[in-house]
Simulated assay, not measured.
Amino acid sequence: MQQFLIIALAHFLALLSPGPDFFLVARTSINGGWRLASGACLGIALANGAFIAMAFTGLSVLREGSLLFTTLQLAGAGYLLYIGVLFLRHAGQSSLGAIAGNQALQGWWRSLGMGLVSGILNPKNALFYASLASMVASASTGWKAAYALWMFSIVLLWDLLVAVAIGNQRVLRRFARSLPWLERASGVMLVVLAAALLLHLARG
């Protein structure tokens, strides 16, 4: 139980640091509300679940320095640049209104896809779960399954909480004038993260 608490705390503290997934959930929630952003939340959780499964079953293909991991980092940098520029281009165009019918359903699936891609192309996820896997290497299959289920659930619940908090219509209307600047700041942060990742790869 002590090991579970240590791992659970380490995992939660890692979630508190804003990254590409956080900015995607925030932007989607600002643009379409928390229900639309819930698709991105599920996509991110599924991507984390895939990394957890790979790390806990002993797959080493995503360890730092491997060809696949370097390719993942390059693709991740490209995706960060893409969504960063997207945020900058569309800053201030959030409707703050509800989306209805088929448009809402299509938007939800698109949001899920973007969340899945964001989570998969975030190399921090692969490294983090690989490091956690070393801590549970001697645990039984049952405990590993419990860790995996806990982590998946916490990622999903945390992102949903972020989406609900940011996507609250009353809050959005109150800070409507600041939203374009917040979106631009998110876009700049994503572009900076992409540049830092590319610089890291170039130096390596």
Rank of each mutant, 00 (worst) to 15 (best):
R35L: 12
M54Y: 14
L67W: 10
T28F: 04
D21E: 05
F51K: 04
L42Q: 07
S134R: 04
V61I: 15
F87V: 09
L24V: 04
L96V: 00
Q93S: 15
A100D: 15
R27Y: 06
A26G: 04
S138G: 12
Q103I: 02
K124D: 14
Q103E: 12
A47E: 01
G113Y: 09
V25R: 06
A50E: 00
L67M: 07
S111K: 01
L74H: 11
A37Q: 08
I44Q: 02
A98T: 00
L80A: 07
Y82L: 14
A100L: 13
G33P: 04
L74G: 06
C41W: 10
A40R: 00
M54C: 10
M135D: 12
A100H: 14
S118M: 07
Y129T: 07
P18V: 03
A137F: 13
Q106T: 15
Q93E: 14
Q103S: 15
G58F: 07
L132N: 00
P20G: 03
G97P: 12
T57S: 14
L132W: 11
A98G: 02
L62S: 00
G76Y: 07
L132E: 03
F12V: 14
A75N: 12
Q93I: 14
A77M: 00
L121I: 05
N48C: 13
I52K: 08
H90G: 06
E64S: 08
S29T: 02
K124P: 11
A47K: 05
A37I: 05
F22L: 04
G119V: 06
P18Y: 05
L127H: 09
I44F: 04
N102C: 13
S111Y: 07
A126S: 13
A50Q: 04
L24H: 11
W34G: 09
L105M: 11
A104V: 08
G97E: 02
A37T: 06
V85F: 05
W34P: 06
F22V: 12
A77G: 13
W108Y: 03
D21Q: 08
I83F: 11
V136W: 08
H11A: 03
Q93V: 11
L132Y: 10
G113C: 09
F51Q: 08
Q73D: 07
G115E: 04
Y82C: 09
Y129H: 03
